[in-house]
Design a protein around this nucleic acid. Structure first.
Lengths: 240, 240
DNA sequence: CGTCGATGCGAACACTGTACGCATCGCGGA
DNA sequence: TCCGCGATGCGTACAGTGTTCGCATCGACG
């Protein structure tokens, strides 16, 4: 670090530790990967591009991460850490479940690549943040008096995962088009009309959906509707 | 095929139409792709390997299919065609919905790669078989008197998709290990115990699940439980 | 000062999806 | 009979991918 007076050229070639980029670290790699995934989508993430962003050589990443799949596992668990749950002593299980479900959906939509990874790997990651999410959710349902709390949360998060991943995939398609959601729907309508020709119920449904001026709000209420359905069904399982 | 006596070399070089392999066709390509996907998983499917299986050159496929993504779309819609729905005049909406849900799950488990594709592309494919599935499902709920049949089926298939894709991803992981499901679970237990250390509810749940002698049956009842929950919730939306 | 484990990285390998241009085919018209 | 012509097959090539290997360099410790 001290200025050496030695004129040997190798001095200039010698790598100097950059203070703002404290070399490579597992966490740094994962974090930058998430930034890239959010910004450019899952198919744009390559080890080489990621390394370039970190001012590193492509293969240096493999000192901190065994494989790209492992990197994705770490990224998934990292974003699961974003999900904030209500405090454990919340008395109203229904409000708590609603909050938990909506928090999950919010992060799934904030990181649309998540649905791709879940489709390939499922929820079997065993990462600490996912574990803690499951644990706290189970605690809510146990405290509420559910006889089979694990079954209950499996049902709930199946719904949440199914709706959120479908939604995220849709939003990814929209984003790739570069248009607003409403504009994309409008452009899609001719194809949809042709595809639903002969299917009267669907044709109606598509027409109604396409006429909605605020698609994002429509998705919100659609999610909320299904969530209420599931919670109603679960409430019937409560003793008394 | 017949032994020609003409010694001109070009005769032997001339391509002979194989009768059993009636050259390339879009349907044939899609069908063989599905066979490969089922047998070796989604990451094993490459255009070159698929072409080799069809006794074709790699780039010949592009005469019938614009891109690999398009091929996957076609494959997805093809397997949606496998889903058999109960006859439309079935009076009991609940039985019909159960059958439809179970049929979906069955094909999702028979073609585990489907969940990967759905994670990336969602259900926005507009393929004819998917359309017809949606149409007939909507018809059931409309006939049953649901005020918002589209909302109802969105909720139902969100649950079904969420549970089925998670299950399919799990089964893929198991299959890659080459072990039976029970053996794989047994081998996973140490890691799971470590991962759930400090999470008492989860630790219990994992221990109980690992002790089950028939994991496949356990998955069946888990799916059925959640399905009943959703249908109960939906039943509350029926007038009267 | 010398050594050692950890870290970074350039080159290379085996693949991938796909664009391009040429060869070949069966067929309809002159 | 011959000629063209559109459809089909395919060899080559390109730009990229994840990952392995072996070498260079580093900071810390004896």
């Amino acid at each position: 670090m001290a200025a050496r007076t030695n004129p040997i050229p190798s001095v200039w070639a010698r790598r100097q530790r950059e203070p703002d980029q404290p070399s490579l670290s597992r966490d740094g790699i994962v974090r930058e990967a998430i930034v890239m995934l959010d910004a450019e989508g899952i198919e744009a993430l390559s080890m080489r591009k990621l390394a370039t962003r970190l001012n590193a050589g492509a293969t240096s990443l493999y000192r901190h991460v065994a494989t790209k799949d492992e990197l994705m596992e770490l990224a998934v668990d990292e974003v699961f850490g974003e999900i904030t749950l209500p405090p454990a002593d919340r008395p109203d299980w229904r409000a708590a479940a609603t909050e938990a479900a909506q928090a999950f959906r919010a992060t799934a939509l904030r990181h649309p690549w998540l649905s791709s990874v879940l489709g390939q790997a499922g929820l079997a990651y065993l990462g600490p943040n996912l574990m803690s999410y499951g644990e706290r959710l189970t605690a809510f349902f146990t405290a509420a008096g559910f006889p089979e709390p694990v079954r209950a949360i499996d049902t709930l998060i199946s719904y949440v995962v199914g709706m959120s991943t479908t939604e995220a995939a849709w939003l990814t398609t929209v984003a790739r088009s570069g248009e607003t959601e409403a504009a994309f729907i409008a452009r899609l309508m001719p194809a949809a009309q042709e595809a639903t020709a002969g299917f009267e119920h669907l044709a109606d449904a598509y027409a109604v959906a396409a006429a909605d001026p605020d698609p994002a709000a429509a998705r919100d209420t659609k999610f909320a509707y299904g969530l209420e359905v599931v919670l109603d069904g679960l409430a019937l399982r409560l003793p008394r």
